[in-house]
Each structure stands twice: as C-alpha cells, then as structure tokens.
Design a protein around this nucleic acid. Structure first.
Ligand code: MN
Ligand code: MN
Ligand code: MN
Ligand code: MN
Lengths: 228, 228
DNA sequence: AGTCAAGATTAGGTATGACTAAGACATTAT
DNA sequence: ATAATGTCTTAGTCATACCTAATCTTGACT
C-alpha cells in the first residue's frame, strides 16, 4: 500500500461523511462537498475505483470499500487528534483549527499523531464534539438530535456541531455555548422562528437562537422522565 | 503572492543551502541534493525563474532572488521550529525529526509555527545546532570548523551536524555527544585515520572517532590562549 | 584549432488532478 | 410514448512535476 495523495484522502473523507446512511453517494453531492466540478469528480472517482478504494455504480453513486473506509478513518483520526491538540495544548481557538488540520492531516505521520494522542490522554472527542476513531478504525457514532427537535420544556446537553463554518463557531462560543453545555429549551416560535434556551449555569440569562443555527446544534436529550 | 507548492519550497531550500558561498548553484548539484534527474531540475528551474524566485544563467547555475531567499528562509524557519518542537515538547528522537519536518514544513501555517516558537521561548538553534531564521528572515551563520581541523590538544565545543543521516545521528548520540558537548582532541592519526577525543565530563573516557564522521562534526574552537 | 568528456538543456512522454463544453442517461411530467 | 429536466459521464485541455533519450555547450586537452 503506497502513500495516498492529499486529494485522495480528502475524497475518501468526504465520501465517508456523506455515506454514513449506507446509501451510495452521488458524485454530484461529492462535487458540492469538495467544491470541485462534477466532471472532475467523475475522473477522480474512476481512479479511486481502479485502486479499489471505492465501488462506483455509474449514475448511481459511490461507496467505500473496506480498504477505503480504513483509509478514511485514518485521516479522520489524524484530523481530529490534530484539532484537539491545537486547542488543548497550543491554545488555538475552536473556530480556526479546522483549516489548519485540513492540511496537516496529510502530512502528519501516524507516529506523530500517536504522540499527540498520548499527550492528550487519548481523547474520545474533538473540540467540536465529533468522535475520534481509534487506531484500529473503531468509531462510535452518537445518537444526537438537533436542538430544534428537543421539544419545549425539554432539557439537553449540547454535544456536537459541524466545524466547517468558523463564523458560526465564533457566534456559538460568544453566547456561552461549549460542547457539554446543559440547557433547557424554554420557548419555541412557529414557522421556523427563533427558539429561547436557558443555560443550566449560575447567572445565565435566556438566549434567543435562530432556527437555522438551532438545527446545527446537535444535542443529547436529558429528559430522564420517561422511565417513570 | 500565491501559495508555493511543496516541490517549489524544497527546491528553494536546497538552493539556499548549496548557495551560501555566493556562487551560482549548478543545476546538477541541485539534482544530486534533491535526488531528481538533471533534466527535471532544468524544467523546474525554468518555472522558478519565470516566477522570479531565482535567476538562471544557462550552463552556469542558479541564484535566489530576494523573493526566493525570503521564501526559502520562511520554509527553513518552519522546518527548524518544527524539529525543535518535536524534540523538546513531544520527546521525539533527534535522529527521526528531520523526515517528519520535511513534510510538515509545507503544511504548517506561520501562525502555528509562531505558537510553537512561543511555547519554546523562541529558540535560536534547532536540535542539530542549525540556526533558526527569525520571522523577519534574519539568520546568523556560525563560524565553525570540522573537528578534523581542530589540531591535537585543541579544545572545542560540538555545535552543529547535518541532520540528513539518521544512522549517523544515532551513533553520535550513542557516544555521548550532544550539541554543546565540550571535549579535547587528544590524538590524531595520519592519512585520514581515526581521532581520539575526551569529553569534558565526569567519568568520560577517551573515544575513537573515524575521520569521515569527525569531518561532519562542526565545532567552535575553545582555545582561548591566542590572546596571550 | 580540433577533439572529447562532463554537464546542461531540449524533446517527448507519463501520471495526477483540476477545468469547460458536449453528449448520454434516468427520471419525471405531459 | 414522448419530451423535458437534471444529473452524470466523456472528450479535450491545461498546469505541475517527474522520467528517459537525444542534443547542445563549455572548458580542457591534445
Ligand atoms: Mn475539522
Ligand atoms: Mn484535507
Ligand atoms: Mn532537518
Ligand atoms: Mn520538504
């Protein structure tokens, strides 16, 4: 197995992210995700299929092979360990690590990543709440719901947000939300209107959150009543 | 000024290293240093000259322009800060950091390198004794001599060794030599024969060093007698 | 001056990975 | 059943960066 190129690794990562449902990933979706012309994706898909990293059904979509999935998870592990290291050790902001990790993930050796993981105590989640695959390629996807699905009066814990929009991350931090923040959903307005949440913290005041933003905040519902 | 490619940065770095004398660097010397066919170097040299990073006199050699020298020193700074960080913070061995830095230097941002430099207290030398250029591109080349030029009875301080041969670095460490080690040259044998040195340390015993290896150990002579 | 060898360049080719424009396919609407 | 639509692929091009083989330049030696 020879070294994979930067492009190859980014394609595999994108395919992994878009294909978690199990459905084949249309090449057009890949093109959107990677900001590359559809025709270019068709060409790359041919090469990836030739090296057996993906399976391609023309006009249907692509799926990772076992080798492809392993390679994708290795890159994802590198990416997330790097992000965590930058934030925890080098005091990087959580909104700017993604761009840096997006390049370093292709240059950092597994050994370097192992050293960083050790220094961090082998964390299970990155700064945005995404699970970090183990060295053996195990990853446990979490069962989370968007804040918008929580229901009025519900209590939840903010656990995960996509890291691809630095502005959004900055805003989320600015209203006091971090991964692990507990809150109550106190009000919901109809027609995809704003929501009001109250953090479970001393001195916290109600906070308005737009519907779109709320959709991007993935939460663990904490309502422990149903057992009654 | 657009992002430079990995190859471009490695060429500039090599040209800087080979051209410190001020003389133009023959493309063949570049080809040797980079382990790339001479014809390929000719092609790359044309592109580098077109973008005004180097000046090329056909059949004579190449020289860095001001822009090229600045770019080269930025890469060298990144490389050496990275090596130092790996050794000092992540407990990396001094013989294996070079390969890692050779890739990371093209992916790490100036901001990341600045953070690492800060964490290290802005060091002036890398783990092999090479000077680290400042952010403004200042670098002070040291006046060092090979151990072989020290003269019998001379005292010196080991200050710099090339980091491109991991085996050699491991051996040097195994005989108790680090950057900063003081020693006396107690014996020299003719016809490029082995030298005997004695470290200025408690419990140190005489150490044989082959001529070739001794040539690669650059030292600061400590003989403070001439002032008499 | 003429020859030769070493070194450098040019010529022609390959692989990667991107693009635009044109054509093919599948699905949905008429 | 046919036509329209959006999606996907193919065809052809380009830039980068490497290769081998052939040609050219330079400087040194006869
Ligand atoms: Mn990320
Ligand atoms: Mn990437
Ligand atoms: Mn190095
Ligand atoms: Mn390099």
């Amino acid at each position: 197995m020879t070294e994979l190129s930067r492009s190859t690794e980014d394609y595999l990562k994108a395919i992994y992210g878009l294909g978690r449902s199990g459905e084949p990933v249309p090449t057009g979706a890949l093109a959107d995700a990677l900001a590359i012309a559809p025709a270019s994706v068709s060409g790359m898909v041919r090469r990836l299929a030739e090296t057996d990293l993906i399976a391609h059904e023309p006009y249907r979509g692509v799926q990772l092979t076992d080798a492809g999935r392993r390679a994708a998870l290795r890159v994802i592990r590198r990416h997330r360990i790097l992000e965590t290291y930058l934030v925890k050790v080098l005091a990087w902001d959580w909104d700017s690590v993604h761009a840096e990790a997006e390049r370093l993930e292709h240059a950092a050796s597994d050994l370097l990543v192992a050293r960083m993981a050790d220094a961090l105590g082998n964390p299970a989640f990155d700064p945005h709440g995404a699970p970090i695959p183990t060295v053996d390629g195990e990853i446990e996807e979490q069962e989370l719901v968007p804040l918008t699905e929580l229901g009025v009066g519900g209590t939840g814990e903010f656990r995960l947000v996509s890291d691809d929009d630095a502005e959004r991350l900055r805003y989320i931090a600015s209203i006091g939300f971090r991964v692990g923040t507990r809150f109550e959903l106190v009000e919901v307005t109809p027609f995809r209107g704003p929501l009001t949440v109250l953090r479970r913290e001393l001195g916290a005041s109600p906070q308005l959150i737009g519907y779109e933003l709320a959709q991007s905040l993935l939460c663990l519902p904490c309502t422990l009543e149903p057992a009654a």
